[in-house]
């Protein structure tokens, strides 16, 4: 598969999140894929020290389902998000997948608050039955060690 197809996928995924199409977004994920957001700059170990997120399919489903819940008070009113992506860099291209790294500015807002995060996103993508799927995603926040208020959506 061409590099362009993978790059388009990264743009499309961000667009999907910005539109709040979380139910569709969760279907992009391989069942054993993990979403990792480290707590430390250059963190190597996601398991034996604290991360911000290290979530399997069950947790991601829970997250997405919760956003729509009738008693999810922290989403009444709802948050919105916005990704501005640099052109994704293809770090590794194979017949059946690719590794992509993307710089991104992420804005999340709710009520009168708005927050800006600078992100480095690493996608591990895989082609399954002709479709591109997410086999893993790592999101590093530039100021990962700063104190944050709520980050409720998915950077």
């Amino acid at each position: 598969m061409s590099a362009e197809r993978f790059i388009d996928f990264v743009y499309d995924e961000a667009w999907m999140l910005d539109q709040g199409r979380f139910a569709e977004w969760i279907e992009l994920w391989e069942p054993d894929a993990v979403y990792w957001m480290p707590l430390n700059w250059n963190q190597q170990d996601p398991i034996n020290e604290t991360s911000l997120l290290y979530e399997d399919n069950f947790m991601l489903r829970l997250r997405v389902e919760r956003l729509q819940g009738a008693r999810t008070f922290s989403q009444k009113p709802k948050s919105r998000c916005h990704h501005v992506l640099n052109r994704p860099r293809v770090e590794e291209l194979r017949e059946d997948g690719a590794k992509i790294v993307t710089q991104c500015h992420y804005v999340e807002t709710r009520l009168d608050e708005q927050m800006l995060l600078a992100l480095t996103i690493r996608h591990d993508l895989k082609v399954v039955d002709g479709q591109i799927r997410i086999a893993g995603k790592r999101v590093d926040i530039l100021n990962c060690d700063a104190a944050f208020g709520n980050i409720q959506l998915l950077p």
Binding site: T50, S51, L52, L53, R63, G149, I151
Partner: peptide, 26 residues
């Protein structure tokens, strides 16, 4: 045991934790 402790911490106490969001909202 460290792995479980780290997991508990990120699931319950992180600014990205759903349980944390519930509490902070209140």
């Amino acid at each position: 045991l460290v792995a479980r402790t780290a997991m508990y911490n990120r699931m319950i106490n992180a600014p990205t934790s759903m349980v944390g969001h519930d509490d902070l909202e209140m």
